[in-house]
Simulated scan of single mutants.
Amino acid sequence: MTSGLFARDRHGDADAEPGLIDFAVNVRGGPPAFLRDALTARIGDLAGYPSAADERRAIEAIAAAHGRRPDEVLLLSGAAEGFEMLPKLAPRHAALIQPSFTEPEMALAAAGVPITDVVLPEPWALTSGAVPDDADLVVLGNPTNPTSVLHPISAIEALRRPGRIVVVDEAFADITLDPVNGRHEPCSVASPAAPDVIVIRSVTKTFGLAGLRAGYLLADPDVVARLTHGRRPWPLGTLALTALAECVGAAGQNHARAQGRAIAADRAVMFDMLGAAGIKVCVPPQASFVLVTLPRALEIKQQLRERGFAVRSAANFVGLDDDHVRLAVRDRATTAALIEAITAIRKEIGV
């Protein structure tokens, strides 16, 4: 799987060293106050095992949030666990829509599943015709990491075929907004239910909980049963169960919508500032990160680190190269400081 910056298992946290201004990781700040309070209230319960009541509460809250039945919900120790489970479906041929998050490839390849990388050309519009007809498992991100492309529901629906399961990674869907009418999660396929569609979601990005590991999966009950066969007992801890219930509840949904609006505003400013500085934004971004191209990007990345900034090279994503860099959306002042540093470095190295 290559090594260093090109290794498939490298993520942005490897760049976000303490003391650096973090543009490498797409997690928002710390947990909001209501969530901190809920988690703090459960510290005294940690001597006991996670309870069936807490698990049931989380499942019922997620089911209600998406208009699903409880038996269509599978709680995950982080969304990445959902990808680790996919080999239990015994796919004969998996198609991965690329470029995209690398964990599905890691999990499927480790299980010996034959994989076809369906590499979309820039601007990475999803077309069903590019997927091999015999692929019985198709995996894509929406919005896609790292391109920040948001695919329309119609394009995802076009991937469906008899005998095929479509897996949609919606880790960042909860902060997406329709740019025209502001509707929340305009391209999510989390509801209504479809028997051949699996949706994998995370709460750790929007709620500042990357260290807790909490997510969930939505699928047909038969698929959920196949994925959970042989699973260890107590797969999620008490705090993760508490976080899931809170994040999909009313307060959590309000927070996600507010974060979506704040990200959209900061992203628009960031887009304009990058363009004004002569930094190419690959496509109009729709998530909490922006993909740019910079000649000699790896050299610029290293020099940015020396000046106190962490950025994420996209060199290890299928279909991208070492001139691609992913930048997390930050506020105007922080973005201005980064762009000033990039501009100075480019002038020094002559690009």
Rank of each mutant, 00 (worst) to 15 (best):
V199P: 06
I200K: 07
R201K: 15
S202Y: 04
S202N: 06
T204K: 01
F207M: 01
G208I: 00
L209S: 09
A210H: 11
A210P: 05
A210L: 05
G211C: 05
G211K: 06
L212Y: 10
G215W: 02
G215H: 04
G215S: 07
G215E: 03
L217W: 08
L217Q: 11
L218Y: 05
L218A: 07
A219T: 06
A219N: 05
D220A: 01
D222F: 00
D222V: 03
V223W: 01
V224S: 10
A225I: 02
R226Q: 14
R226D: 12
L227D: 11
L227N: 11
T228A: 14
H229P: 01
P235K: 01
G237D: 12
T238P: 12
T238Y: 05
L239Y: 11
L241R: 14
T242D: 13
A243Y: 11
A243F: 09
A243V: 11
L244P: 11
L244M: 13
A245L: 02
C247S: 13
V248Y: 05
V248S: 03
A251H: 09
A251N: 10
A251Q: 13
Q253R: 15
Q253N: 12
Q253C: 09
N254R: 15
N254C: 13
H255V: 10
H255I: 09
H255Y: 15
Q259N: 13
G260C: 07
R261L: 13
R261E: 15
